[in-house]
C-alpha cells in the first residue's frame, strides 16, 4: 500500500484523517487557515473542515497554547501549531507551568491530551531568531513527551500517536524536511512513542541521531562503508521518553558511539544520552563517546558560517574515522 508523498503531505493527511474520524480534534495556530499554514501543512483544510475547526489565531502564542490546554482539559483533542520552536518560547509558561504540571498538581485529576506541533532547525539562512533546535530543552521537562519525526512514515504516524496519548505531546518537524519525499504506508501499524528505530544495521560504530540528523548520519554511513567502516544508525524518534534499550543494545554490539544533535552541545540531549550510556553501558565502550553538535553560537545568517555551525555528514565521517583510528 506504499505510495510516494512528501513529509508535508504526510502530516496533512494524518491531521485530515484524525479530524474526519474524531470531532474533538481541531487545529489552531497562526496562519493555519486562510494562509494555509506557514509551511503549507494545513493548505486546503479550512475548505474541508471550516473555520470552526481550522482556527486562525492572533500572534498570541501564550494564549492560544493555553487555550489548547484548557480545551484539552474540557474533552477536546486540540492540535496547536506554533510556527517555529523559536516562537514557542512565548508560550513556554503555558507549556511548562500548565501543560506539564496540571496532572500532577491536581493529584491525577486533570490530564491534558494536547498536541503541539512546531517547525524546528536551521539551514535556510534565517539567522539567530528562526533557526534554532530547542527540542532538547523541552525534553528536560517531566510531564511532556517530545517527538522528532524524521521520515515520511513517522511524520504521518506521530500525529495519530500524539492525539491518542492522554498527555501533552510536542512534535518537532524540521523545516528542511517538509519537501522531502518518501514512501508512506497509511495502513502500517504505528511504531509506538518511545521506541527508537535502527535505520541501518552495522557492527563497528553506533551513530545516534534524531530528526534531520538521521539523514546526515545515513549519508555518513555510506561514505564510511567505502572505507570499510560498518556503522549502525539509530533514529531516536522520541527525545522524551528516550529508548535507552535500543541505544545500549547497539553499543553492546559496536562498543563505540557518536551522537549527532542539532542542538548546542552544552546541556543538550546529546549530553543526557552520554550520561545514560555512562550509567548503563560504560564497560561496553572501547573508546570515549563523541558528539557532533551545533557550534556554540547563535545561528549566523551568512551561508558559509551557518553551514560551518551545523552538523553535517563530513563532520560525522571525520569523527567516526578518528574513533576507528583511520583518520
Amino acid at each position: 500500500m506504499d505510495n510516494i508523498t512528501t513529509y508535508r503531505e504526510a502530516v496533512k493527511e494524518a491531521i485530515r484523517k484524525a479530524m474526519r474520524e474524531d470531532e474533538r480534534v481541531f487545529l489552531m495556530g497562526e496562519d493555519v487557515g486562510h494562509y494555509g499554514g506557514c509551511y503549507a501543512v494545513s493548505m486546503g483544510l479550512l475548505d474541508e473542515f471550516g473555520a470552526e475547526r481550522i482556527i486562525d489565531t492572533p500572534l498570541s502564542e501564550s494564549a492560544f497554547t493555553g487555550a489548547g490546554i484548557g480545551a484539552a482539559m474540557n474533552g477536546m483533542r486540540p492540535i496547536v501549531e506554533i510556527m517555529t520552536v523559536n516562537f514557542s518560547l512565548l508560550a513556554l509558561d503555558q507549556i511548562m507551568n500548565n501543560a506539564a504540571t496540571l496532572l500532577h498538581m491536581s493529584g491525577g485529576q486533570f490530564n491534558v491530551p494536547l498536541v503541539i506541533r512546531m517547525a524546528t532547525g536551521g539551514g535556510k539562512q534565517l539567522a539567530a531568531q528562526h533557526s534554532h533546535s530547542l527540542e532538547g530543552w523541552f525534553a528536560h521537562i517531566p510531564g511532556l513527551k517530545v517527538l522528532t519525526p524524521a521520515t515520511i512514515q513517522d511524520a504521518y504516524e506521530m500525529v495519530g500517536l500524539a492525539l491518542a496519548d492522554p498527555d501533552p505531546v510536542l512534535i518537532f518537524e524540521n523545516a528542511l524536511l517538509y519537501n522531502s519525499k518518501g514512501s508512506l504506508d497509511v495502513h502500517a501499524t504505528p511504531t509506538p512513542i518511545g521506541k527508537a528505530l535502527i535505520h541501518k544495521v552495522g557492527k563497528d560504530i553506533t551513530i545516534v541521531s534524531y530528526g534531520i540528523s538521521l539523514f546526515k548520519a545515513l549519508e555518513a554511513s555510506k561514505t564510511l562503508a567505502e572505507d570499510g567502516i560498518d556503522a549502525e544508525v539509530i533514529d531516536l524518534r522520541s527525545l522524551r521518553p528516550l529508548d535507552d534499550e535500543t541505544i545500549m543494545n547497539s553499543i553492546k554490539k559496536t562498543h563505540k558511539v557518536i551522537i549527532v544533535d542539532e542542538g548546542w552541545k552544552s546541556g543538550s540531549i546529546s549530553a543526557e544520552i552520554m550520561a545514560r550510556i555512562n550509567e548503563q553501558a560504560f564497560y561496553e565502550l572501547d573508546a570515549p563517546m563523541e558528539r557532533v553538535c551545533t557550534a556554540e553560537v547563535p545561528i549566523p545568517y551568512a551561508k558559509h558560517l551557518e553551514d560551518a555551525a551545523l552538523p553535517n555528514p563530513e563532520k560525522i565521517v571525520a569523527m567516526a574515522k578518528k574513533m576507528m583510528g583511520k583518520s
Binding site: A67, N74, M105
Partner: peptide
C-alpha cells in the same frame, strides 16, 4: 483542584490561568 465541582485550581503564575479559561470555554462552545 476538585474535579467533582469543576474547580480547576489554584494557579500560582499570575495571569497563567486566563488562557486556560479561554480554552475551556472554547471547548464548551464547540
Amino acid at each position: 483542584f476538585d474535579g467533582a465541582t469543576r474547580f480547576y485550581g489554584g494557579s500560582a503564575i499570575v495571569a497563567g490561568a486566563l488562557p486556560l479559561a479561554v480554552g475551556m470555554a472554547l471547548a464548551d462552545k464547540m
